[in-house]
Structures are given as C-alpha cells and as structure tokens.
Design a protein around this nucleic acid. Structure first.
Lengths: 246, 246
DNA sequence: TGCGGCCACTTGTCTAGTCAAGTACGATCC
DNA sequence: GGATCGTACTTGACTAGACAAGTGGCCGCA
C-alpha cells in the first residue's frame, strides 16, 4: 500500500512540500470527521483557491488520497469521502526464511523429497501441462529454532527452472531460488484451515487432529505457471498477521 | 495545439491515454526482461524523446510503476529496475455481508447474544478499559444460503457506539454499523487455524474436531480501541483468497 | 406534464518550461 | 595519494493554461 506517512518534518508545517501539505490537511479533516462518508468534498477549484497552489498540485494530493481508498472521484460529479470499509486491509505473505530471520530466529530446512515425477492430473491442470508430463517435486520442512513451522509441498514446471533439482534447498529456499531464476508476475493464493495429511502430520511431528493453516500458492510467469505450492503450518505455532492504516 | 489523439485503440496501442501508453510500454519491456533487476532504466529525458510526450507525463508513468514496486528511483542517480520478490502479495478482508452478496448469494444473520457485560480482564486490556467496566457483547452467526459461514463474537467499547445494543443486527452487520458511527483509522488482525470453542461449534452446527479459520480483529479510532472481534469460520466452507499482479 | 437540449461545473489529462536538490565523476590542488 | 571543488546529469516538484469528457440541473417547448 502506498503509505503516505512521512516522518512529519516540522511540528506545524506538516510537510514543506505543497502537495504533501494539502494532502495532510485534507487527511486531518477527514480524520476529524469534517466530511462524513459519502459527502461531497470541496472541488479542485475550491482547494486551489484555499491553498494557493495550482490545480496539478491539488490533483496530486487528491489522487494520493484516492489511492489510499479515502476518497472516490467521479468525473463530472465531484470528489466524495468514502465509507472507510471500502479500504481493504492488506496482508503480506513473505518468504519463510525472511520471516523467520526477521524475528531474529534461526531457520533450518530439511529436504524430504526432491525428484522428477510424472504430473498427476491435478498438478498438470494447475501448471498448464498434460497429465504425465515430467514435473519437479520437492517436500521440505522448515524449522524455526527447532520447531517445525511449515511443510512445503511444491511442484515446479521444469521449463521455468531446469536446474531446480540440483539446488541445495537446505541453504536457499525454493521461493528464493525460483524468484531469482524465474521472476513471477502474477500470484494467487488461498488460505484455509484443515487437518493435515498423513505425511504432513508425520513430517511436522504433530497429531493428525491438530488443525493447520494451509496456504496454497500458484505463481505464474508472464503466461506460464511456474510453480504450485501447498504450505502447511501447525495452527498452534503459526499465525498470519496484518495491519491497516490509511 | 494539436493533440495527437487516436480515435480507436489499436491492438498494439494499449491505451489511448499517453501516460498509460508509456507505462504499458515500459511494463512490457520490464516483463520481457529488457531491464534486468538492478539495472538502470532510461532517464526521463530519454523517454521524453522516445515517446514524444512531456516530462510530466513520463514522470507519471514512472511513478505508477514505482508505486507498484517495479522501479526504484533515486534523485540525482536515476531510475532502476527492482528485484521482483520485494513486492508482497496482499489479501483483502471484507465485510461478511459484502462478501456474500458479491458472490450473488443471500446473507442472513442470527443474533444469539446482545447485552452489556462487565469486561473480563482480557477484553478490558484489549479495549483499553479497566477490568469490570461495562462493555457491549454480541454473538452473531452469519449464514450464506443457509450454511453457517461465520460466528462473530464481538466486544464493543460503549463510548464509541452508545446505541450499539439497540441496532437490529439481523438487518445490518455490526461491522457496517460501527463503521458508520465510528469510522476506524487503524486495524490489526491475526489469522489462525484452531478448533472451535464449544459454543462456537454448537452455533455453527459443526463438530468440535472440525478445524476453523479464526480471524481476530481489533479496530481503533484515532486513539481509542473501538471493538475487538473473533470471527470463526468452518474450515470446510470458508477460504480466504488473494492475488497479486503488479 | 413530460421531454429534449443547453450549459455550468467537475474531474482527467497534457504541455512547456522553471527552479530545487541530490548524485557521480573528473579536474584541480595540497 | 588523497581531499576538495565544480559541473553535468538526474529526479522532485510546481505553475498556468488548455482541451476533453462526464454529470446534473435548468429552461423552454410540445
């Protein structure tokens, strides 16, 4: 999200740059409830007169606020304050290694499977291949300070990363490697709660009745799917977190 | 002066608006790998000459790409292509009513509890109150086409919404009502997988061994916590979805 | 009354030029 | 060699004015 929070240079000037000044002023008024949700804001001309800047500058301030989801603008009609619930919170999903080390903890990965296989029908469909085509398959368990945090069951399209199976995945995560050799341009994922499969439970060292948070992620190149991964996390030790601030 | 405006968007034109045309052209080149991560892009002056538009227009295209995380710009140094893995995916969390009706389904809410209570220590801490202070407590089950989708267990700070208990929550969701009377400006949440509590299982009509996706959300006014909610979803019928595309 | 057209207002976008501020790099000086 | 300075280049921001396009209301007419 475009965070338009700057360190707030001066105590009162709230940004010496004109468009920041305008934006912060309107933001403060919005926050104070001067413009209730759905109500009409002053027009660009009004703001030009009020702040003594050009229309381009006012426009930039308004566009910033619009991109933050605080305003809605309709050509010909005007600028309106939005219902705040339209601003969706966002959640970052990061590389597991990055996430663990950002907490200052130690990350270790154990490779349980790393081979070429014929694609099952489901995997083939997801990767845009035909059933039985060769795909790379890895199963890796990631530990944070010796507790199993994630079981990563991943299929990779060999066309996108021919040398995938030769990588030492105890040293570099598949996510990181794939990003280096095949930058993705599209990604989709689902998050669900479910019980682990038999193998996942065994690898994670948990009971089969223990709920898990499962993230399924599909990343694609410009046109071709690169990889599909199923990331299983024990519910007791793993939570996703997010925050929203306009 | 002459505005070189094409009447119809050609197949290759990709947007008749100049700044969109520039942005799409650069985006396509980035995608094709013409500018490897970290490498220097053409300067604004170069692009002005190449596309025959003004510097403001080139600048807007570049700023768009920068905000998407595809470019990094340093004053005095130049514009550089970024490593794509720095862009994090994002996940939208929406109001349950909005979510259900956007799927074209019917939403129904059943109110199981709606009263004032003294705050437990945990709730008081989260809402920034003292233990035993009166808080509003509602428990509502949301149905999508007669299947229970969410159990919403919510505590509300009475200061922020004094008339909360008088609202008909079978007609309007607490989220929606609270947003109308007390727009929030900060929200944090966690997502986890766990087994439902006894009451939650009963209200949702599911087995206690059935994993649930639990979203805990705390929303705050500019300084004061408004409400804390625990949203329990049966894992079998509810998934969060997200997508990322630059 | 009902309807069509006119018009004021609003946002969307662009231009050409200006000044400011930060960076990189080479030339000069000690 | 090493520090300093100057300069060319780059991005950041702004202005004043222009045209395009969508909206909504008002007015006159049938």
């Amino acid at each position: 999200m475009p965070t338009h929070r700057k360190p707030a240079a001066g105590p009162d000037d709230s940004g010496s740059v004109p468009y920041v000044r305008v934006r912060e002023a309107l933001f403060a008024e919005l926050k104070r409830g001067r413009y209730p949700p759905g109500s009409r804001m002053p027009s660009e001309s009004d703001l030009v007169a009020r702040f003594g800047v050009s229309r381009m500058t006012v426009g930039r301030a308004l566009r910033d606020l619009q991109e933050s989801g605080l305003l809605e603008r309709r050509q010909g009609a005007g600028t309106f304050a939005t219902q705040p619930h339209k601003v969706a919170s966002t959640l970052r999903i990061r590389d597991i290694h990055e996430e663990i080390s950002s907490r200052g903890h130690r990350h270790r990965a154990v490779v349980h499977l790393c081979r070429e296989e014929p694609a099952s029908r489901e995997v083939a469909t997801r990767l845009g291949l035909v059933k039985g085509a060769p795909v790379f398959h890895t199963v890796i368990v990631h530990f944070e300070n010796e507790t199993a945090l994630q079981c990563e069951d991943r299929f990779v399209n060999p066309v996108c990363a021919p040398a995938y199976l030769g990588v030492d995945f105890s040293a570099v995560t598949p996510t990181h490697y794939l990003l280096a050799v095949a930058p993705f341009w599209k990604a989709g994922y689902t998050i669900e709660a479910a019980l682990p499969g038999a193998r996942e439970a065994r690898l994670l060292g948990i009971d089969r009745a223990q709920p898990c948070l499962i993230v399924t992620r599909l990343t694609e190149n410009r046109s071709m799917p690169i990889t599909v991964a199923r990331l299983t996390h024990p519910g007791l030790v793993y939570q996703l977190e997010g925050a929203f601030e306009p």
